[in-house]
Amino acid sequence: MNLAQQLINGLVLGSGYALIAIGWTVLLGAARLVNFAHGQLYMLGAFVAWAIMQKLGLSYYLAVPLAVLMLGLLGVLLQVMMLPLVMQQNLTSLMIVTLGFGYVFTGGASKIFGGDPQAFVSPLTAASIRFGDVWFTWADVVTLVGTLILFAVLWLVLNRTRTGAIVRSVAEDPKLAQLFGINAALVYIGVFVFECAAVALGAGLVAPRSPILTSMGFDEVILTFVIVVLGGIGSVGGSLLAGFGLGMFTALFGALVSPAHTTAAAFFVLLAVLVLRPGGLAAK
């Protein structure tokens, strides 16, 4: 085994995981809302970008921002529908509603885009870099750097700006925040839009690694579960660390033990941690 290569793979995988998970982490932290349609939103992000490239003939560099924009708009629509339940903090119903949305997206996407696997080609994936026996692509570099920048900006916004303070106050106590004149509904919409846009960006950078399918939905992003919970619910820094940790685990487990059982192994780790520390690793 080439250890250096596996470590690079781990870093690249980890940054991808963290990028796909970030919207979810923020949503969970600020709105206590679990979006079980997260995987389907990832699928939609990839397919919308692919369709823009195929049908409109636009370049990858335009298609991905457009997909991010469209998913953001979809986020507004979804959150406006869910708003009454969100304001009541009816979390049980919300979880089930998002499962329903996810199922609609799966059915709708295969009606629109067809059931065949498609090649979502990024020019960045084709350009590779080689140092001795270590190999990676420009897409990997962009994903890694982009993830680090996004996390840094997000951390600064949440912890060092007035907007961040508003979001955190709504997360802490929505009723009290409203008493202070904060429009909690607007915060919830903003956070949800961020989730949808962030997962579309994640899809734009990560999905070109393999053929895309309308049925991929949750299975593609299932590992982000582990990150969100392990990183500590709603913790931005925690989810970045958990993302890289999981990337390393996946790369090394796949190389040393068995690639087929990597997901199952990652979930066993999750189950074990939850039995010992129900609040996740970051819990005090």
């Binding site: 869910m82 509603v97 499962l99 329903g100 199922y103 799966t106 059915g107 709708g108 295969s110």
Partner: peptide, 15 residues
């Protein structure tokens, strides 16, 4: 289509 119906019914009822 059935998937859309099933998912939409689930979401719509609760909403």
């Amino acid at each position: 289509g059935d998937k859309i119906v099933l998912g939409a019914v689930l979401a719509a009822i609760l909403l």
